[in-house]
Structures are given as structure tokens and as C-alpha cells.
């Protein structure tokens, strides 16, 4: 099953729309609630990042019998040093992002904790792509 969502820059009100929809789908498919939580927390963090840091992007979700693959690809400034961005507490978030309860430098580390595979690629001035995979069993 393939799903696609569009992420709009600065559109915090709709941050989490993709994650909510994926949550409903996985519930309908009878996936273990603990696994669903891991999936949607990671996807939500990625969605918030794309809205907070980039100029919009796409969320691509592929659900198979035994796993889910999620790709959040944004057009944006990119991440110059991915290793640094993966460190807990490192943040470049603007004040308005912090006002929404985010921007504490916990997003990428939390994604890593919740997924089985995480791959972050980025090109400065072009954008960032976060690929995540979670197994259902």
C-alpha cells in the first residue's frame, strides 16, 4: 500500500496529518499498538522537522505485510553536518518552532530510537531526505 502526503513550510497546524493517517491505517491492519506508536512518533518527528526547517516536501509511505517504509524528503537548506544533527540537544530551530513545543534537538535521535533502520542524506542548499523502516514483528 502506497501513500503520499505533502508537507508545507511553516504549516504547523497540519504537522502530524500524515502521521495521523498512517496511524489509522496501521490500526485497521491490526498492527501491534507498540509498533504503531514507534512508527508514528518517528514519522511525526520527521514531519515536524520538514515543516520547521525546510521549504516543504513530501512524505512517502509504503506499507507491506511485514514492514513499513517511510521517506520524508524536503526541499530546504540541508544539514551541513549530519553527525552533529544526530546528537541529542543540538538544534538550529527558530523561536516559533520552540513555541510549538519542539526544537530541543531531540527529533533525529528520537527517530533513531524508534525505527529499525534510519538513513539521513542531505545536500546543503538542496534538501534532506530521511528514510525509515520499521518491522512489524
Amino acid at each position: 500500500m502506497h501513500q503520499e502526503y505533502t508537507v508545507v513550510e511553516g504549516d504547523f497546524v497540519n504537522a502530524g496529518t500524515a502521521s495521523s493517517s498512517v496511524k489509522k491505517t496501521l490500526k485497521q491492519l491490526g498492527v501491534n499498538p507498540q509498533i504503531i506508536k514507534r512508527v508514528v512518533v518517528a514519522l511525526y518527528e520527521a514531519e515536524v522537522n520538514a515543516i520547521a526547517h525546510a521549504y516543504g516536501g513530501k512524505v512517502l509511505v509504503d506499507i507491506e505485510a511485514d514492514k513499513i517504509n517511510m521517506v520524508v524528503a524536503d526541499k530546504g537548506p540541508g544539514i551541513p553536518d549530519i553527525a552533529q544533527a544526530m546528537q541529542e540537544g543540538y538544534s538550529t530551530a527558530r523561536p516559533e518552532v520552540r513555541d510549538m513545543g519542539f526544537g530541543a534537538g531531540m527529533g533525529l535521535p528520537n527517530m533513531q530510537k524508534n525505527v529499525d533502520k534510519l538513513n539521513v542524506t542531505s545536500e546543503v542548499g538542496v534538501g534532506t531526505t530521511v528514510e525509515m523502516e520499521v518491522m512489524f514483528n
Partner: peptide
Amino acid sequence: GLCNVQTIRTCDMAT
């Protein structure tokens, strides 16, 4: 003390 839509969304994701 955070009262916005993201409070609710976050709770939804975090169950």
C-alpha cells in the same frame, strides 16, 4: 502549559 494543536497531535502520536 503548551496549549496548541500540536499538544493534541503529540498526545495522539504518543497515545
